[in-house]
């Protein structure tokens, strides 16, 4: 079981690293989106500090959605997905491996460059730490729920737009509690831990829900 997880994870990472550009597009998209807001909203210091968490989270959400469409589509087109469905290994392990690969390629880089948000939006040090922590817990949720959307819309025309239509309502709790962590730590009241625990709880719920739903959707899509 674990061997398959590592195998698929390695395979996806080698595949992605053979096309470095795809990995960088997600990160640059994130940077561009967070740099656009000050141009639109104005560069007043307090305002930027206030909207920083929301902007960072919405940018992360859109960036991870960008890379979702390719999560299963290349396997779907060349038939490897069929082989995965027919492997005796449980399908949810393979799905988890692919989601982990997607997270390592899109989620983790966002966490690592989120200090950039801190710079641009005049956030002080421990806000940035809170932001990174929230993103660290939140981005796997985005990848997990995103995998459901990617599997459901596999091989459909207009898949990109359809995925965002299906997933945005599901991303709302991550956005509310993710942004809440940073906003709360800014107000110095002490229940940032409750926000983080809520995010963790949501992560565990997605870990339980997503593999089953994605596996079911993959089987339906490749019929």
């Amino acid at each position: 079981m674990f061997k398959t997880y590592i195998l698929i994870l390695q395979r996806d990472l080698t595949l992605a690293l053979r096309h470095k550009t795809e990995v960088l597009t997600t990160i640059f998209f994130f940077i561009i989106v967070i740099s656009l807001f000050p141009l639109g909203v104005g560069i007043d210091k307090e305002l930027l500090q206030k909207i920083a968490p929301g902007v960072a989270w919405i940018a992360a959400l859109l960036a991870s959605m960008l890379a979702l469409e390719r999560l299963f589509s290349s396997d779907y087109e060349d038939g490897t997905l069929e082989q995965m469905l027919l492997s005796p290994q449980p399908l949810f392990v393979i799905v988890l491996a692919k989601v982990s690969a997607h997270w390592l390629l899109t989620g983790l880089p966002l966490v690592l460059i989120s200090p950039l948000v801190g710079l641009q939006y005049h956030l002080d040090f421990d806000r940035v730490i809170m932001m990174m922590l929230a993103l660290l817990i939140g981005t796997p949720i985005l990848s997990l729920l995103g995998a459901i959307g990617a599997a459901l819309t596999l091989g459909l025309r207009g898949g990109g737009v359809l995925i965002s239509l299906l997933l945005l309502p599901l991303y709302i709790p991550v956005l509310i509690y993710g942004a809440g962590v940073v906003v709360d730590s800014a107000l110095f009241n002490n229940n940032t831990e409750t926000y983080l625990s809520l995010l963790m709880g949501f992560l565990i719920l997605s870990l339980v829900l997503s593999p089953w739903a994605t596996a079911a959707a993959l089987r339906i899509a490749s019929e």
Partner: peptide
């Protein structure tokens, strides 16, 4: 106990 080979080759072109 099963091996399947469909119209698609089931191999990654980049590997």
């Amino acid at each position: 106990q099963l091996t399947w080979l469909g119209h698609l080759n089931g191999i990654k072109l980049d590997l």
